Computed example of a mutant assay.
Amino acid sequence: MSTGRGAEGMRVLFAAPAHLWDAWSPALRAACPEMELCRDGDPAGFDALIYAPGYPENGQALDFTPFTRARVIQSLWAGVERIVTNPTLTQPLCRMVDPGLAQGMVEYCTGWALRTHLGMDRFAQDGAWRNRLTPPLAQGRGVTVLGMGELGRAVALALAGLGFRVAGWSQSGRPVPGIEVLAGDALPQALGRAEILICLLPDTAGTRNLLDAERLALLPPGATVINAGRGTLIDEAALLAALDRGRPGHAVLDVFRQEPLPPDHPFWRHPGVTVTPHVAAETRPASAAPVVAENLRRAMQGAPLLHLVDRVRGY
């Protein structure tokens, strides 16, 4: 079964910004006590790297070439667009798929979808009795989830469980039991039914500026866009112009091309935009450390790795 040596005694480099060490090192050591977790050392002496962008902290991209013994690069984050393009990376790269991350994304997207659906912001506390603003039931509201990976599937199923008319869209159209999944060229159809559009696509060459002026115009009037995927998905100028036309009617944005979002960015001032500071889903050490430990053991035992990144697709 195993072609490699056992996991006992493996040396692992914590190749992540220094401020993450105090939170992550206890959880990682508890989940994988057999490893030697290091913050520095001879690159040729490490069996694996636990990596997050921002390392090294000199602003330069990490050179993976000297890590000749490393059997896996385990990302701490779900997004790997800042890693996969590194030309020195030849080792297997695994992205983070963490149950806590998925739960956080479900809670964020469900919360904002319900707030939008119920029109909760329409009820100003000003003494006016607005009892004619009753929303439809969830089955009367069309929701589309762009991106049907681990996070998209979890969000789509949660919203379907609340009764919403949920459809998903992905380039491949891979089936998800209980969810209508549209593929590829059916993107206009997916957008046209989306009274609430939830964007959970990765950052790839095929998704950048996917929501441009032409595609935003396909949304129903007054639709809400919730982007918790990647900021590069949306053409920012096109979105601002579309909001001025009421199509969409509102955008809840958690991710941006530049983060932190500059204080003078027009998103802060536009009445049709709600900015949240990249808080939709966080990788939490307690739930993610067992995922890391499992992949480290698999790498050392020569077993198939979990959540291996496809270099061609970029995720």
Rank of each mutant, 00 (worst) to 15 (best):
Y315D: 02
G149V: 03
R297L: 08
G272K: 11
A167V: 15
N227V: 03
R5H: 14
D235G: 02
T116A: 15
I198T: 02
L37H: 03
E36I: 13
L114Y: 09
R297W: 10
A303K: 10
R269Y: 03
L49P: 02
A31M: 01
G41K: 01
Y315H: 14
A16C: 10
L101P: 04
G246V: 05
Q103S: 12
G104Y: 06
D98C: 09
E236I: 03
R257C: 14
I198L: 14
D126C: 12
L89R: 01
T110A: 15
M120P: 00
P99S: 11
P263I: 09
T65G: 01
V225E: 03
G127S: 11
Q74P: 01
A70H: 04
E282R: 15
H270C: 08
A18F: 01
R153F: 01
P266G: 09
D98I: 03
G149H: 13
G45D: 15
C32M: 13
L146M: 11
D203Q: 12
T207H: 07
D22C: 00
G231E: 07
Q258A: 14
L13C: 01
F267G: 02
R165Y: 00
L118C: 11
I50W: 03
C199Q: 05
G149T: 08
N227K: 02
L146Q: 05
L182Y: 08
R69Y: 02
R39G: 14
V273F: 08
V255Y: 05
T207N: 03
V97K: 06
I179E: 04
G161R: 04
V292N: 00
G178V: 06
Q189W: 05
V252N: 02
R29M: 10
E107C: 05
W24F: 11
A228N: 01
